[in-house]
Design a protein around this nucleic acid. Structure first.
Length: 515
RNA sequence: GGCGCUAUGGUGUAAUUGGUUAACACGCUGCCCUCUCAAGGCAGAGAGUACGGGUUCGAUCCCCGUUAGCGCUACCA
């Protein structure tokens, strides 16, 4: 039985990279009928927040990634982790380190580490030079009993090689000389990350660890802990990281909201689109396109009924495999200075595609939620005007990118309170002063149109244009702005039909004041 | 500093595991459609696969080096 887990630390919001890790774990579990677990790694009590935990759970729920079994909080297992460390001391596989704790300035830890390493290589000190490593157990115990504070470190063998086969990155090796006697337990008794993950993964009977590539080199340390604990080592699969444009690190601190999953939810993205996009960052389904011909002159033959990039969660599950995850980091492309490109182009396109192609039963509830949030929803859209509502959504969704557009650009379809786009007013209304007189004429015409359909509206408008000696286009464009506030939109006669006779005529008359 | 990972158009990815005019999607340009804007259709531009060496009849693919980016290197996770 395959068991995988997603184990985020609850600091800040859910990062899109983390969301992708969750997705891959979930896809893998669902693909092979395994179990997908969620564990909150709140070992660092200073930085962990309940709010963050909530946003992680909400985020996964929003994406549709349901987890099996009980949610696990790592902090709840701290006692077990401590006990494991103590057991290792007794077994002689770990030792007490009485060296006083060195304070580190949080700001530039990385530099400090590098400098420390540089100094160590100059003086020739190696990773096994800790004076407490070979302290007799009697002395170690008596000092501990006397109340002297100590950290617990794993006793890494002096010679040897750690190795494992990563499902994505292949064979990995690391000389023990590169690995220090890592701290398992802090002197204040708190278990550290490497110990905690291993203990929890053992306890949760995790068989496959799928996580970000940033954990690749530390995996060797964790394997050492598994071995010391006499536990079987799980399979590992590391995922390439997601980087910012220019190949730089994509960080919460520098890039802000753009990396937060909630940003996309709040901006009107569909979970299906986000999942689809994320899945394609670092993975691609087999047979995504036509195979090259084997011999020149042969006809192009599709290998497979073409599997496109557009996939539902179901299709992603069916096509998923660890083998097709690749190793190079993906760049999440966006331009912070360009509002039209505030996030990745392809994600934007994909979201628009989903909006315009999703079946009604899936899209309509989402539009309803958006309208409710903007106070544009009316109960009759679910009752008497059900068909009208579906028709309206169908008509306008064609050119929308996010759900927000239904309450933004699409506002005029659901109520009389809407904004006029300045450029549209200028271009379609003010440019032709005669419209001041012409619009009421058209309005009168619309009032008398019976029955009120696309066809009759078109006939009325064209007749009106002919009689007044202007081009139909002038009326059409003016009407678009008068009725919707926009310069762009669906075919105008359908808009008349949808907005209805009374509102159409009224808006045409009211638009006169804008000229 | 040490160790590790990665490198295919602007971006995401293909390339039957050494034989293709290096393919697809997004984006970009133009045309068609047209009442506008999209969508859709059609046609293009854009990489000779980071660079330099090998191995081979033949390298995107195998090996070595260089460069760049990233990761790890903590009593952070």
């Amino acid at each position: 039985m395959i068991r995988v887990r997603f184990a985020p630390s609850p600091t800040g919001y859910l990062h899109i990279g983390a969301a992708r890790t969750a997705l891959f774990n979930w896809l893998y579990a669902r693909k092979i009928g395994g179990t997908f677990l969620l564990r909150i790694e709140d070992t660092d009590l200073q930085r962990s927040t309940d709010e963050s935990t909530r946003s992680i759970i909400e985020g996964l729920h929003w994406l549709g990634l349901d987890y099996d079994e009980e949610l696990v909080f790592q902090s709840a297992n701290a006692d077990k982790h401590r006990a494991a460390a103590l057991r290792l001391i007794e077994a002689g596989k770990a030792y007490r380190d009485f060296t006083p704790k060195a304070e580190r300035a949080d700001a530039n830890v990385k530099q400090e580490i590098a400098e420390r390493a540089r100094a160590a290589s100059h003086t020739g000190t190696d990773h096994r030079s800790n004076p407490f490593r070979d302290l007799s157990s009697q002395e170690s115990e008596s000092r501990a009993a006397a109340g002297e504070p100590f950290a617990v470190r794993l006793k890494v063998a002096r010679e040897g090689l750690s190795s494992f086969v990563d499902a994505v990155y292949g064979a990995q090796e690391r000389d023990y000389a590169e690995i220090e006697d890592l701290v398992l337990l802090r002197s204040d008794g708190h278990p550290l990350y490497n110990l905690s993950v291993v203990c929890d993964d053992i306890e949760m009977r995790i068989t496959d660890v799928i996580r970000g590539q940033d954990h690749l080199t530390n995996t060797h340390k964790q394997i050492l802990i598994y071995e010391a604990l006499n536990a079987s080592v799980p399979r590992f699969a590391h995922l390439p990281l997601i980087l910012a444009p220019g190949g730089k690190k994509l960080s919460k601190r520098i890039h802000g909201e753009i990396v937060s999953l909630t940003t996309y939810r709040d901006a009107g993205f569909l979970p299906a689109a986000v999942c689809n996009f994320l899945a394609l960052l670092g993975w691609s389904p087999a047979g995504v396109q036509f195979a090259a011909t084997s011999t020149p002159g042969n006809e192009e033959v599709p290998v497979d009924p073409r599997v496109g990039e557009l996939m539902s969660l179901r299709e992603m599950i069916d096509n998923f495999s660890l083998e097709r995850i690749h190793r190079n980091p993906a760049i999440f492309n966006f331009d912070a200075n360009n509002p039209k490109r505030w996030t990745d182009d392809k994600l934007l396109w994909m979201n628009a595609h989903y909006i315009r192609t999703l079946p009604h039963e899936e899209l309509l509830p989402l539009v309803r939620a958006e309208l409710e949030a903007s106070r544009l929803w009316r109960e009759e859209y679910a009752g008497d005007r059900r068909d009208w509502f579906a028709r309206a959504v169908d008509l306008i969704r064609e050119r929308f990118y996010t759900l927000k557009d239904f309450s933004g650009q699409g506002r005029a379809y659901f109520g009389d309170e809407f904004e006029f786009d300045e450029a549209a007013v200028k271009k379609n209304l003010q440019k032709e002063p005669r419209l001041k007189e012409l619009l009421p004429v058209l309005a009168a015409r619309i009032d008398q149109t019976e029955p009120f359909t696309q066809e009759t509206c078109e006939a009325s408008l064209r007749a009106c244009a002919e009689e007044t000696g202007v081009k139909a286009g002038l009326f059409i464009n003016a009407a678009r702005t008068a009725l919707t506030g926009q310069a762009v939109g669906p075919s105008m006669f359908e808009v008349f039909d949808l907005v209805g006779r009374d509102a159409s005529a009224r808006r045409l008359r009211e638009a006169v004041r804008l000229i």
